[in-house]
C-alpha cells in the first residue's frame, strides 16, 4: 500500500494519478491523503517513472474530475482514481455511459452538488456599489458570498461575461475574484468584515420583493427548497420573509371580506369603440378545438 499526499486541488491529484498510472499501480494499493502544507509524492519519490505515454481518457472525464476536485468529500480522490483506472486498465472504456455504476453515480452526484453550488453563486451573489474608479470613472461593486465548496474559479467566468462593463470583486472565505475590465484576478479568502454590509438600492429591492409576493399562495417549503436558509444572511430581501409570512393570513382574510365591486360603465374612448366594432364583425378563422 502506498500513501500519496496531495494538495486538495485538481492539478495535484492529476499529476499523482498520471504517475501512478504509469507505474500501473492499481487503485486498491493507493491511500490518498490531503495536505495543503506538505504535498509530497511520498511513496513514489524513490522510483524512476517509466517513460510511457499516459493513456488518453475522454475529455468528459477530465471535466468531471475538475469539478469533483472542488468537493470536500475525502473519498473523492480515490474514487476518481478508481474510475480512471477502470477506464484505462480495467477494459471499461464505456464506464462514463453507465450512470448505474456505483463509482460513476457517486462522481455524478458530486458533480451535481458542485453544479448546484455554482448555480447558487450565480443567483445569490449581491453586489454593493462602493464608488467609482478615479481615473476610468467605472462603477465599482463588491459582493460577499459563502459557497459550500471551493467553486470561485469554476463560477467566475459567468460574472466576467455578464458584468464586463463594471469593476467588481466577489469576496468569499476561500478565495476572492476581481475584475477590472481587462482580466480576472484571484486572491486568497477574506473574512466577512472585508465586504460592505449594504447598498442604497437594497430598500427598493425589498419593496419589490414584498410587492411581487402573493399572500394567497403561501408555499414556504417550496421557497426554502430552492433558497435554503443558509443563504438568507447574505440576501438583503430575506429580512422581510418572516413578516410577509406572518401577515399573509390577515391579508387573504381581508380580501375575502372585501365587498365586490360592480362593473363601471365604459368611458368614452375611440379605441374601445373600434374594439367593439371589431368584435361584432366576423372574426378571423379560429382553429377549432374539440370541446371548446
Amino acid at each position: 500500500m502506498r500513501t500519496v499526499i496531495i494538495e486538495p486541488v485538481f492539478e495535484s491529484w492529476r499529476q499523482s494519478a498520471r504517475n501512478l498510472l504509469a507505474l500501473r499501480v492499481p487503485p486498491s494499493d493507493v491511500l490518498w491523503c490531503e495536505d495543503a502544507q506538505e504535498p509530497t509524492l511520498f511513496g513514489l519519490e524513490n522510483e524512476t517513472l517509466p517513460r510511457v505515454a499516459v493513456p488518453n481518457v475522454p475529455s468528459a472525464f477530465l471535466d468531471m474530475a475538475r469539478s469533483v476536485a472542488s468537493h470536500t468529500d475525502a473519498r473523492r480522490w480515490s474514487v476518481l482514481y478508481r474510475v480512471l483506472w477502470r477506464l484505462t486498465h480495467g477494459e471499461e472504456r464505456h464506464l462514463l455511459a453507465i450512470s448505474t455504476d456505483s463509482d460513476m453515480r457517486q462522481v455524478q452526484l458530486w458533480c451535481k452538488a458542485i453544479g448546484r453550488d455554482i448555480h447558487k453563486m450565480h443567483a445569490f451573489v449581491r453586489f454593493r456599489l462602493v464608488g467609482n474608479d478615479e481615473i476610468t470613472g467605472r462603477e465599482q461593486f463588491v459582493a460577499w458570498f459563502e459557497p459550500e465548496y471551493r467553486i470561485v474559479r469554476l463560477g467566475a467566468g459567468f460574472f466576467e461575461k455578464r458584468f464586463a462593463g463594471m469593476d467588481w470583486s466577489i469576496l468569499t472565505p476561500h478565495e476572492c475574484v476581481h475584475w477590472d475590465g481587462s482580466a480576472m484576478h484571484f486572491t486568497p479568502g477574506v473574512p466577512r468584515s472585508a465586504a460592505p454590509d449594504d447598498d442604497a438600492l437594497d430598500g427598493l429591492w425589498r419593496t419589490y420583493y414584498r410587492s411581487i409576493f402573493n399572500p394567497a399562495r403561501l408555499k414556504v417549503r417550496a421557497m426554502q427548497a430552492e433558497m435554503p436558509k443558509k443563504y438568507w444572511k447574505n440576501l438583503p430581501e430575506a429580512s422581510v420573509i418572516a413578516e410577509l409570512i406572518a401577515e399573509s393570513g390577515g391579508r387573504v382574510e381581508k380580501m375575502l371580506t372585501t365587498e365586490s365591486r360592480p362593473a363601471k360603465p365604459a368611458p368614452k374612448n375611440a379605441y374601445l369603440d373600434s374594439l367593439r366594432k371589431m368584435n361584432t364583425l366576423a372574426s378571423p378563422s379560429l382553429p377549432s378545438t374539440k370541446g371548446s
Binding site: A123, F213, R217, L218, A222, E226, M227, L244
Partner: peptide, 11 residues
C-alpha cells in the same frame, strides 16, 4: 437563473 424566491414559492 432564479435570483430569489418569494414565500409563495415562485421564482
Amino acid at each position: 437563473i432564479c435570483h430569489s424566491y418569494a414565500p409563495d414559492g415562485r421564482c
